[in-house]
Design a protein around this nucleic acid. Structure first.
Lengths: 182, 182
DNA sequence: AAATTATATATGATTAATCATATATAAGAT
DNA sequence: ATCTTATATATGATTAATCATATATAATTT
């Protein structure tokens, strides 16, 4: 489960609570890499603690629920290093739009174009999000190795969205140019 | 669940058994679109039958387990058409390699390059598979609308793999050109 | 005054996908 | 002679992810 390692990586930079992880990382700078739900974050923190890879220090708060600040243990650091050296299988991409197109032969072109334009809109948003993350990484300055690697990663995410958008545009043009009776 | 619609789409072309679906489609011409496990196929067939979207005709076989040949019902056909017109959310891509790179700052370049080369090998295989599917689509001839749409889809899958490979190559070159002490 | 947002953690339920294994037999390969 | 492959379906178990909801209070917005 890579989520566990994302969390280890984030906690290694700075000890944090589940709430912090969610609101300041998974909702934002990490969302393009590994989106995660609040429930899953807390459950993964539990598992990591049970494994001894993170430890928690409770900060008592009078009014609010206590903050459980987690930090990576020595065992956790080792586990993360091991994982960072291990081969990871290619993610499988299951894209419903591609399935729709594969079976779309008896839809009129106009209907297919509608589908494509809806995806286009969604993809533009996704691209914008990636670009926002990239921009933050650039303005954050410091050409550190860390930053550099992260830039490559976001840059790839941007290229991936761009490729999708290019392809959508081309298909739309193609379908529009065909006899509209189709 | 899109798998249900993939199955509807395949059965609409030709009534088939779960076994046929697996061996002649999901293992091959559909694998790049929506890989599916045998267990999941049979369970989805059960669900589709309960919903009344497919119906099964049992062909009794003396030696082997009986063949349950499924075909799409009128209700199923309508459900598929509805789905083919519905907006589908963008698939989320969770790519462990990108996570590794994001947190790889304290690995030596050589180690990162090793990771990248392993992915390169796996991606080359994935590309080869897509190309094989594309080739079959082309040699199958007949510039039918159906074929044309499927070609666009595989073509995109190929471009996606190609983009990944290009990016990997570039990163490898970049990391190799840096001071090897890193 | 009432509703929402922010802070913080937790659990129950469900879905989609994967892995393993079971049953049963015939044909083909080592 | 034994092992594997092909044909065919079925079920149990587990994982990863998502959705909903619960608790509790303060501050802010409408």
């Amino acid at each position: 489960m890579s989520l566990a390692y994302v969390i280890l990586g984030l906690l290694e930079q700075q000890p944090m609570t589940g709430y912090d992880l969610k609101t300041s990382w998974f909702d934002d700078a990490i969302a393009h890499l590994w989106p995660a739900d609040q429930a899953q974050i807390y459950r993964t923190l539990d598992k990591l603690e049970q494994q001894g890879w993170i430890a928690c220090q409770v900060e008592v708060q009078p009014d609010r629920p206590n903050r459980k600040v987690y930090s990576v243990t020595e065992g956790g650091r080792m586990a993360l290093q091991r994982w960072l050296h291990s081969f990871q299988p290619l993610p499988v991409i299951r894209d419903p739009l591609l399935v729709q197109l594969h079976f779309a032969a008896n839809l009129p072109n106009a209907d297919i174009v509608t589908l494509l334009e809806q995806q286009q809109a969604a993809r533009r948003e996704a691209l914008a999000h990636c670009q926002a993350v990239a921009k933050k990484l650039l303005t954050a300055g410091s050409g550190s190795r860390e930053q550099q690697l992260r830039r490559y990663v976001v840059e790839f995410a941007i290229q991936r969205e761009q490729l999708y958008l290019d392809w959508l545009m081309q298909m739309i043009a193609e379908l529009r140019s065909e006899s509209p009776s189709l």
